[in-house]
């Protein structure tokens, strides 16, 4: 895949399904295992939801730019927003022993993706980059699946 697949959506939750649909089809084209594809779609969806909720404070007309790449069996997603910058050090997943609503999205991302990096070295917003090996056994560590 020499060129990334790019999609930009307004920060309105009703457009999240578009991102999921494009990503699902891309992963299907690359024959990603079905359960792996579902988990990756979930993480990208959660990341975009967090941007809408926290980065843009619920505003619906701001941009979310997403690019997908698959290279050597590694999936990479870059998600750019122009909202309130997140403090990566303060992003903490919910404790699992707390059965309460909320806080699960970040947990899903950290649990599923191989790497998660928030870059705020820019005037506005955040660039979130996440990677995931598409097939079990292909990863050197093989810890996450």
């Amino acid at each position: 895949m020499r060129q990334p697949v790019k999609i930009a959506i307004p920060s309105d939750p009703k457009y999240l399904c578009l991102t999921r649909s494009v990503l699902q089809q891309l992963l299907s084209l690359h024959e990603a295992p079905e359960d792996m594809a579902r988990k990756i779609v979930l993480c990208v969806d959660e990341a975009c939801s967090n941007i809408i909720k926290y980065g843009y404070g619920g505003r619906c007309e701001d941009p979310i730019e997403i690019s997908f790449e698959i290279e050597n069996d590694t999936f990479t997603v870059k998600i750019r927003d122009y909202g309130k910058q997140c403090d990566a050090g303060k992003i903490k997943p919910r404790k699992l022993d707390e059965v309460k609503p909320g806080g699960l999205g970040t947990f899903f991302i950290n649990e599923i993706m191989d790497t998660v990096h928030y870059c705020t070295k820019r005037e506005k917003g955040t660039l979130l980059t996440m990677t995931k090996k598409l097939r079990q056994g292909a990863a050197a560590s093989g810890i996450k699946n």
């Binding site: 969806d45 959660e46 059965v99 609503p101 909320g102």
Partner: peptide
């Protein structure tokens, strides 16, 4: 997604507080 799960967790909390039952049925693999 997590917002859907959170919504159902609220049902669980209602169940615990009211002593009524809150059950989920027909979960797909996804």
């Amino acid at each position: 997604d997590s917002s859907g799960i959170a919504t159902l967790v609220e049902g669980l909390q209602w169940s615990h507080a009211s002593k009524n039952k809150f059950r989920l049925a027909g979960l797909s693999p996804a």
